[in-house]
C-alpha cells in the first residue's frame, strides 16, 4: 500500500441486523426453525470511499445516530466491514470515555495492560508510568481497583494513557467531554502542544470550535452517508444548516 496514507477505505459499508426476539440459544433456534427471527436492517454506514494521509487531523461531525461512532469502530478494526476493504498503516487506538480498561484491575495494572496492547514494551511503560499517573491526578489511588473510581477518574486515566502511550492512528470520540474544567484545560493544552504532531487523528466532536481549530479537513455524515469530505469550513456549514 501507499506509505503516504494512514487509512484507505474502499467501498466500505455496514448494516446491522437487529433481531426483535433474539434467538441466541440453541433451544430457541431448534424450537423456531420454521419461524426465523424477524430482523430489522439498520444501514449504519452506506457505501463510502476515502483516504486519510499520515499526520492529518480529520474532524468527523454529524448528528446523533449519523454513523460516526460506527465508522470509527470499523476503521479501528473493532467491527468487521460488510463490503470493501480498509488498509490501515500503523497501530490504532479508539478512545471514547476510556481506553479498554478492566474494572477488575487496579490503575497500575490497567496502565500496563493498555499501554502494552498499544504496542509499548514493559521498559518503556516503566519510564512513562509516573507521567501517566501524575497527568491523571491519581497518585493516591494507583493500587485501587478502578471499579471504585468515579467515572471522571476513570475517564482521566484513560485519557492520560492515550496521551502518553499513544498510537500511530488515534480515533478520539468526544474526548473533551472528559473530566472537570481544570482537566479539560489540561486536555486542550495537550492538543495544542506538539503531541499530535506526526500522529494521524480522527476527531469526533460536537464542538465546532474544536473541530475548526484543529482539523484541516473534515467529514460530515448524515443518516450513515458521508455527505461531504473536505474543507472543514464547508463541513461545519453543512452541519449547522442541518441542525437548523
Amino acid at each position: 500500500m501507499n506509505q503516504e496514507f494512514a487509512i484507505q477505505a474502499k467501498n466500505i459499508s455496514k448494516t446491522f441486523h437487529i433481531s426483535e426476539d433474539s434467538h441466541n440459544t440453541v433451544k430457541h433456534r431448534l424450537f423456531n426453525i420454521f419461524n426465523p427471527p424477524r430482523s430489522k436492517k439498520v444501514e449504519a454506514l452506506k457505501m463510502m470511499n476515502f483516504e486519510v494521509k499520515k499526520g492529518e487531523c480529520i474532524g468527523l461531525i454529524g448528528r446523533n445516530g449519523s454513523g460516526k461512532s460506527t465508522l470509527t469502530k470499523i476503521l479501528a478494526g473493532v467491527y468487521p466491514t460488510d463490503t470493501g476493504h480498509i488498509n490501515i498503516n500503523g497501530s490504532t487506538l479508539l478512545m471514547n470515555l476510556g481506553v479498554g480498561m478492566s474494572h477488575e484491575l487496579t490503575a497500575r495494572e490497567n496502565v500496563y495492560v493498555s499501554a502494552s496492547v498499544l504496542g509499548l514494551k514493559i521498559k518503556e511503560i516503566d519510564e512513562i508510568f509516573d507521567k501517566i499517573i501524575e497527568f491523571a491526578e491519581l497518585k493516591e489511588f494507583v493500587d485501587t481497583k478502578i471499579k471504585f473510581y468515579s467515572s471522571g477518574m476513570v475517564a482521566r486515566l484513560g485519557f492520560s494513557i492515550a496521551v502518553n502511550a499513544g498510537a500511530d492512528i488515534m480515533f478520539l470520540d468526544e474526548i473533551f467531554a472528559v473530566g472537570d474544567m481544570k482537566f479539560q484545560e489540561k486536555a486542550v493544552k495537550v492538543f495544542e502542544s506538539s503531541w499530535i504532531e506526526g500522529k494521524t487523528v480522527i476527531l469526533v466532536s460536537h464542538s465546532m470550535d474544536t473541530i475548526q481549530k484543529y482539523c484541516q479537513r473534515s467529514a460530515y455524515m448524515k443518516h450513515g452517508k458521508m455527505e461531504f469530505f473536505g474543507e472543514t469550513e464547508k463541513a461545519v456549514e453543512m452541519y449547522l444548516a442541518d441542525n437548523n
Binding site: 478494526g77 473493532v78 490504532t92 481506553v99 479498554g100 498499544l118
Partner: peptide, 9 residues
Amino acid sequence: KYLYEYSNM
C-alpha cells in the same frame, strides 16, 4: 472485551 474493543489487538 476491554482488550479488543478499543484496539486492533
